[in-house]
Design a protein around this nucleic acid. Structure first.
Lengths: 218, 218, 218, 218
DNA sequence: CATGAATGAGTCTTCATTCAT
DNA sequence: TATGAATGAAGACTCATTCAT
C-alpha cells in the first residue's frame, strides 16, 4: 500500500504477485530477512529471478507487502473483539490475540529483525502496538471509571504491561511449555483480570476479589 | 560459551580487545548487526581494519563476545535478587530487572535481530530466558505451597507470562511513556503481585485481597 | 566430474560461458593459478566481474571446467591411437601424445600447481595417468606374450617409466632443445622400442635386436 | 645463499634458523606453498610469528633456503656418481637418483608449484635439470664415440628423455606400484641401457644386443 | 509479462609484513 | 633475539538490481 509496489494489470499478474507474497512469507519465516535472497523467493514461487522486480522494487518492499497482508488478516481476526464489554470479554480478546500472534509470530520476528535497521518497519510495528495500546488503555480507563478496576494503576502503563505480557508470551514462552500449554490462554486471562482487580459486570459496585473462587485456600 | 576468540597475551592486547568490544557495542546499538561493517567497529575503536580479526574470527564472534559481557553484567546485577523472600522482594526484583533490561535493551534487540537467522544466538537467548523462567517458576510454586498465591495458576505458564510482561515492557512500551514512565516499575510490581494474589508474608494465612487498601473505591 | 557449475540456459549464456573458459585458459597459462584474479578472467573475456560467478562458484571451479575441456580434447586426440597394433604404431601413439601434451603442457602445469594443495585436482591427474598407465601396461603385456618384448621387464613398472618419459619430455625438456627439437618424437619412439626390445610384427618369432640397422657401427 | 637471508650471529640464532627451515619443510610438504602461512611455520618450529622475519624477508625466501638445503643434500648424494664409468655404473647412478628424488619429491613438487608463478624458482629448477642434462648428454656422447651406444640417437634429446624418465618415475609412478615396486630401480636401469643399446665395457667393439641374455625367448 | 544473463558496488576475510616492547 | 600486536593491501565472493530478449 505504502510500499513501492506495481499493481498487476492482468489476472495472470495478480496470481503471480500473490504467489510471490506467499512464497516470500514462507522463505522469510524460514531464513529471516538478511539470509533471504530475491532468488530464493522467486524459486519458491516458481518464477524467474527477475520476475520479482515486476511487482516489487526492493526486497524491503516484498517484506512490506507480506507484512501488509499479515496485518490485514490480523486486524480482521482481532477487529471483532469487543473491548467495550465486561470481564468475560477479556477472555475472548486474549484468546484472539494469542491465536493471532502465535500464528504470525514467525513473520513478525522477521519484521523486527529488519526494524532494527530500517525505520520504515519499526514505524509500522510501533503503529501496530500503539493502536492496540490505545484501545486497551481506553478500556482500562473505562473500567476504572466503572469502578471495576483498581484506581491506583496508571492506565497507560498498565495497558503497556498487559499488552507486553500477551505479545511476549505468544512470541517466546509458548515454545517453552510442554507442547504449547493448552491452558496458556486461560492463565493469561486470569492473570489479566486479577492484575486489574477486574470484577464481573454485575458486581461492579462490589469491591473486587471478594469471591472465594480464586483458588486460594479453596 | 566463549566464542571463537583469540585471547590476548599481553596487556596491550587486552586493552585493544576490550576497546573493540566496547566499540562494537556502540556501533551495533547504533546501526544494528546487518548494517555494521567490521570497519565501523575498527574505526570506532581507533584501530586498523585487520586488528579486529586479531581477536575475532567473524562479525558474529564479535557480537557474541559483546553479548557475553552484557550477560555477565546482567547476571551480576540480577544475581543478588533474593527471590526466596516475601512479597516486597518482588518489587526489588522487578526494579532490578527493569533497570537491567532497559539498560541493555538496545543490544539485546540486536541479538534478536541476528537470532532470527543464526541459531547460535537464539540458543543463548533461550538459555537466558529459560534460566530466569526456572527461577520464577520455582518461586511461584513455593509461594503457592505457602498459601500466598492462587492455586489455580499453572506455575510455569504464569511465570512465562509475568517474565514476558517485564521483558516486553522494558523492551518496547517503555519508549511510549513520556520519557520513561517513572511509575513503570511500581505499576509492574503491583500487577505482578495482584495477578498472583500475592499476600504479605505475615498475612499468609489470610485470604489474599481482603484488604480494602487496593485503591478501588477507597 | 562436472564441477559445481551453473549451466547456461540460453545461447547467449552458452557463448559467455565458453568465452569465460577460453579466457580462463589464457590467463591461467599466463599467470598461473595463484596469481590469477577472477577479475583477470572476466576482463580477458570482456565481461563484468560478477559474471564469472554466474557460471562458476569458485576459482577452482573455473579451473576444473577448463581442465575438463582440455581432457575432452586430449582423449579425443589420443583416443584414436590403436595401441593393439604392432611396432610402427608406437611411433604413431607417441607422436599423438607428444603433440597433445606439448600443446597442453602449460595448463597442465597450472593444474599441477593447484594439485599440490587441492586434492580434487591431484585426483583428476592421477586418474588421467592411471588410465593411460593401464592401457600401456596391457599393451606391453600383450607384446610380451607375443614374444616381441623382453620378458624380464615388469609390465607395470615399465609402462610407468615409459609414460613418465613421454610426459616428462613433453613437459620440460622440450623447452631445452633448440626451438623444439624436430627429432624429439622420432627419438622418443626409438628409445621406447629399443627399451622394450620391440621387434617388427613380422619378425615376432625372431630374437629382437638382431638387425644391424640400428645405426651402431653401421 | 642467493636468498635475502639474515645469517644468525649467535648459536641460539643458528639453532632457531635451522629449526625454522626444518619446520618449513614439514609444513610446505604438508600444505603446499600457497596454503602455508608464515604462522604455520612459526608454530611448527615452536617460535613466535614474528621470529620468522628475523631470518627471512619473505615467504619465498623461506622456501628458497629450504630448497637450498635440499639441493645441497641432493648434489651430495648424487655427486659421487661416476658417470664416466661403463655400463654397470648406470645402475649405480639410477639407484642414487631414484633414491634422492623419491626422498625429495614432496618438496620439489612444492617448488614446482611456486615456479609456475615465480621465475626465481623456475630458474633454479631449470639449472638443476640443465646441469644434470649436460652431464648425461656428455656421457652418452662419449659412449657413442666409444661405439657402445646407438649412433642414430641425438645425444641431447636422448638424455632429456632418459632424465625425464627417471625424474618422472620417481615423482608419480612410484606411488602407483604396489608399495613402491622394489624392482623399480632395476627396471629403470634395464630400460636405460637397452634404450641406448649400451654394451658392457669389454664388449665395446661388439655390436650391442647380441647377447641372448636379454630375457626374450630365453 | 516473464526470463535469465549481466552488472558492479559492497564487505568480509586473509595474511604477509612491520614494529614496539 | 624473541614476541605478539598492528597494519593494510588484496581479492574472493555475494546479491540486489537492471536490462535485453
Amino acid at each position: 500500500m505504502t510500499a513501492a509496489t506495481r499493481e498487476p494489470r492482468t489476472d495472470r499478474g495478480r496470481r503471480t504477485r500473490d504467489s510471490l507474497i506467499s512464497a516470500a512469507r514462507t522463505v522469510f519465516e524460514r531464513q529471516g530477512f538478511a539470509a533471504t535472497r530475491m532468488g530464493d523467493i522467486a524459486a519458491e514461487a516458481g518464477v524467474s529471478h527477475g520476475t520479482v522486480y515486476t511487482y516489487f522494487d526492493t526486497k524491503e518492499d516484498v517484506l512490506e507487502a507480506t507484512l501488509q497482508q499479515l496485518i490485514d488478516h490480523l486486524l480482521e481476526s482481532i477487529g471483532g473483539a469487543n473491548l467495550t464489554d465486561p470481564m468475560d470479554q477479556i477472555a475472548n480478546a486474549n484468546e484472539r490475540y494469542l491465536g493471532a500472534f502465535a500464528e504470525n509470530a514467525p513473520l513478525l520476528r522477521v519484521v523486527e529483525e529488519v526494524s532494527v535497521t530500517d525505520a520504515r518497519f519499526s514505524a509500522i510495528l510501533d503503529d501496530l502496538r500503539r493502536s492496540h495500546l490505545r484501545r486497551v488503555t481506553a478500556q482500562i480507563r473505562r473500567q476504572q471509571r466503572e469502578g471495576r478496576v483498581h484506581h491506583d494503576l496508571d492506565p497507560q502503563t498498565t495497558a503497556a504491561a498487559l499488552c507486553a505480557m500477551v505479545e511476549g508470551f505468544s512470541r517466546h514462552w509458548t515454545a517453552f511449555g510442554s507442547t504449547q500449554d493448552p491452558n496458556g490462554q486461560a492463565t493469561l486471562t486470569l492473570l489479566w483480570q486479577r492484575a486489574l482487580g477486574l470484577t464481573p459486570a454485575d458486581s461492579a459496585t462490589t469491591t473486587p476479589h471478594q469471591e472465594g473462587s480464586d483458588g486460594i485456600h479453596r
